[in-house]
Write a protein that binds this DNA or RNA. Structure first.
Lengths: 153, 153
DNA sequence: CTAAAACCTCAACCAATATTAAGGTCAAGG
DNA sequence: CCTTGACCTTAATATTGGTTGAGGTTTTAG
């Protein structure tokens, strides 16, 4: 076991990894990406403030919602520097991400409903199949709406 | 415009691309991955049966639900070979994928609800925060449940 | 004091999903 | 006929999110 200075105020990378359930290599990776930071001992080993655990927890949650690391990093960058994110900071992040999540859920739900309507009806080859122009975002990229083309002969 | 043989029975890669809204490079890519197939002209150019459009439409839909190409390929492999997927084939695929989609929607919904409960409550640092053991699947990988560790000092 | 465990850096690699470029061929219209 | 656009192949590049390995240093336990 690695002792970590007075009163366990700082954590080694191994401790961070085991407490967060995130691999050491991933912790290094997140640091390289600027999501977390550390100070160094005289021997050049990383020491993390305990607040890093909260950030890692937030990263995990955000990733589950499908948010890329770059966006998580952007959000962290807008937080007051050098401090543990507060409950208030968390509130801001989480409510933003909850909205993103909601949107994605709605998209997937629409898609699922359209799938449901199409199952067994053979409408994939019929001109008014909802899947011919699903979700949103297939959108405008040519003259006229972009449709999925499904007709036979 | 490239004429495509008698009665437009076959499509060139460019036609497939513009009708499906998928880049030529992606069509090539899908063919390399075995998701679609083509025959060749004397001059070694690809000619696609129109049924390829249906497959491409299915690929697009499946990708939206988050299904990787490899799985889409597996599903196609179980279809009767050398034919256009029928309505019945489609029914099978889509109902399977709808189930997957449902599961993912449920997971995301649980996560969203947990996020909602946590916003502004500061519970990220309180021991019974639902985010301390969210979704599912953080599951068993050590002795005792794996928790996100969020406590301060 | 010493040996093992933990740490360090840097570079290479993985997988998925493509896109882009280089260098060359084919086909259709004027 | 000849130019031009569409096509061909192969290889390199890109992005995201990491892991693995080599080669070397530090820390800690006994």
């Amino acid at each position: 076991m690695t002792g970590c200075g007075v009163l366990q105020r700082y954590l080694s990378v191994g401790e961070v990894a085991s407490r967060s359930g995130i691999a050491v290599s991933a912790v290094h990776f997140y640091e390289r990406k600027g999501l977390i930071s550390s100070i160094r001992t005289d021997g050049n080993q990383r020491r993390f403030h305990r607040g890093v655990l909260r950030k890692l927890a937030i990263i995990k949650v955000a990733q589950k919602t499908g948010i890329p690391l770059s966006e998580i990093g952007d959000a962290f960058d807008k937080l007051p520097p050098n401090t543990v994110p507060t409950a208030k900071d968390w509130a801001k992040l989480s409510s933003q991400w909850r909205d993103d999540l909601n949107e994605r859920i709605e998209q997937l739900t629409r898609l699922r409903d359209q799938l449901g309507q199409c199952i067994g009806c053979g409408c994939l080859s019929i001109s008014d199949c909802p899947l011919r122009n699903p979700a949103d975002e297939l959108a405008v990229d040519g003259p006229g709406a972009r449709l999925l083309e499904l007709e036979e002969h």
